[in-house]
Simulated scan of single mutants.
Amino acid sequence: MTGHAGALTPDTIVDFIGSIFDRRGGEEYLGEPVTMGEHMLQAATIAEQNGQSEEIIVAALLHDIGHFTSEFGTFTMEDTEDRHHEDAGAQVLEQFFPPVVTDCCRYHVAAKRYLCATRTDYFSRLSEASVHSLKLQGGPMTQTEVKAFEKNPNLKAIIAVRYLDEAGKRAGMKTPDFGHFAGMVQRQVDRHISGSARE
Rank of each mutant, 00 (worst) to 15 (best):
V185Y: 11
L155T: 06
Q186V: 08
M184L: 15
E166C: 13
L164V: 09
E166K: 10
T144R: 13
H180Y: 15
L155G: 09
V161L: 03
T142H: 09
T175M: 08
A167L: 10
G139E: 12
A182H: 06
E150W: 08
K135N: 06
G139M: 04
F149K: 08
L134K: 01
K151H: 12
T142W: 07
M184W: 10
Q143N: 14
E166W: 01
T175V: 14
D165I: 01
G179N: 09
A167E: 15
E166F: 02
G139V: 08
N152Y: 01
G183S: 15
R170L: 12
G172T: 08
I158D: 11
P140M: 11
Q188I: 03
H180Q: 09
G168H: 09
H132T: 13
I159G: 03
K169E: 10
K156N: 13
H132N: 12
V161D: 04
I158A: 04
F181G: 04
D177V: 10
P140S: 07
Q188L: 13
G172W: 04
I158G: 07
L164P: 09
Q137W: 13
V161W: 02
F181A: 01
A157L: 03
G183F: 05
M173R: 14
A148W: 02
T142Y: 05
N152G: 02
T142Q: 03
L155W: 10
K169F: 01
G139Q: 10
V146Q: 06
H132V: 10
E150I: 07
I159V: 15
T175W: 05
A160Y: 01
F181P: 08
L134I: 05
I159K: 00
K169A: 10
T144G: 14
A160G: 00
N154G: 03
A157M: 02
R162S: 12
A167R: 05
H180P: 05
A171W: 06
V161P: 07
R162P: 00
S133C: 03
A171R: 14
V185G: 05
P153D: 12
K135A: 14
V146K: 10
K151L: 14
I158L: 12
T144H: 12
A160V: 02
V161R: 07
A157Q: 14
K135L: 12
K135H: 12
K147S: 15
I158C: 09
A182I: 08
G168K: 06
G179W: 02
E145H: 08
E145R: 09
T144S: 14
G168E: 10
P153L: 06
A167V: 00
A171Y: 13
M184P: 00
K169I: 14
Q143C: 00
E150G: 06
N154F: 10
I158H: 08
P140D: 08
Q137E: 14
K156E: 15
S133E: 10
Q143S: 13
D177G: 14
G138E: 06
A157D: 13
L136S: 12
A167I: 05
M173G: 00
H180I: 02
M184H: 07
A148F: 03
V185Q: 04
K156M: 03
N152M: 04
Y163L: 13
G138T: 05
K135M: 09
F149I: 06
Y163Q: 11
N152T: 04
M184G: 08
F178C: 01
N154V: 03
